[in-house]
């Protein structure tokens, strides 16, 4: 039922190892479409390249924790169902994480690459769960 759309991602892949932010993409379209005319000193160009490089590093090297938070309305059975359906957990693992959310207020349900963490974030929230991401510092 739920399909993953690549366009939700913060960055768009434009080739192997290259990324451009949506803002940069808009700028590029405007520039190539003739809506913008700019004169730029070539010495100013390295700055955005550095930013892109940092984003590539962040996206590919850092892992992210997907955290599900407790709430008073979602049923325990429903949360188990969502963990099994979205995260592919078996029942034992889904139940363990559901009880952790219920008793401790939150549970780290996955530690993944940025892209996969965002995918889980969207799927879990589409199922009505409260989700945040945080960089995994370990």
């Amino acid at each position: 039922m739920f399909g993953f759309s690549r366009s939700h991602s913060p960055d768009f892949l434009i080739g192997p190892g290259l990324r451009v932010t949506p803002l940069a993409s808009t700028f590029s379209r405007a520039l190539w479409g003739g809506e913008l005319s700019i004169t730029m000193d070539t010495e100013t160009l390295p700055a955005p390249v550095e930013t892109t490089s940092e984003k590539v590093e962040e996206a590919f090297e850092k892992s992210w924790n997907v955290i599900v938070w407790n709430d008073p309305v979602n049923l325990m059975t429903y949360v188990v169902f969502v963990f099994m359906r979205v995260l592919g957990f078996n029942k034992e693992k889904a139940t363990k994480h559901m009880l952790q959310v219920h008793q401790q207020g939150k549970s780290i349900v996955a530690t993944e690459t940025r892209e996969k963490a965002e995918f889980y974030h969207q799927q879990l929230q589409a199922h009505g769960l409260t989700v945040t991401l945080e960089p995994n510092e370990k």
Binding site: S5, P22, L23, W64
Partner: peptide, 27 residues
């Protein structure tokens, strides 16, 4: 909350919410 925690900017958040809406309205 999740978008803020992930450090998405305004435009990225707007796109993210739009996709979430598409998932819901697909029903």
């Amino acid at each position: 909350r999740g978008c803020v925690s992930a450090g998405l900017n305004e435009e990225q958040t707007r796109e993210w919410i739009e996709n979430l809406h598409n998932l819901k309205s697909a029903n």
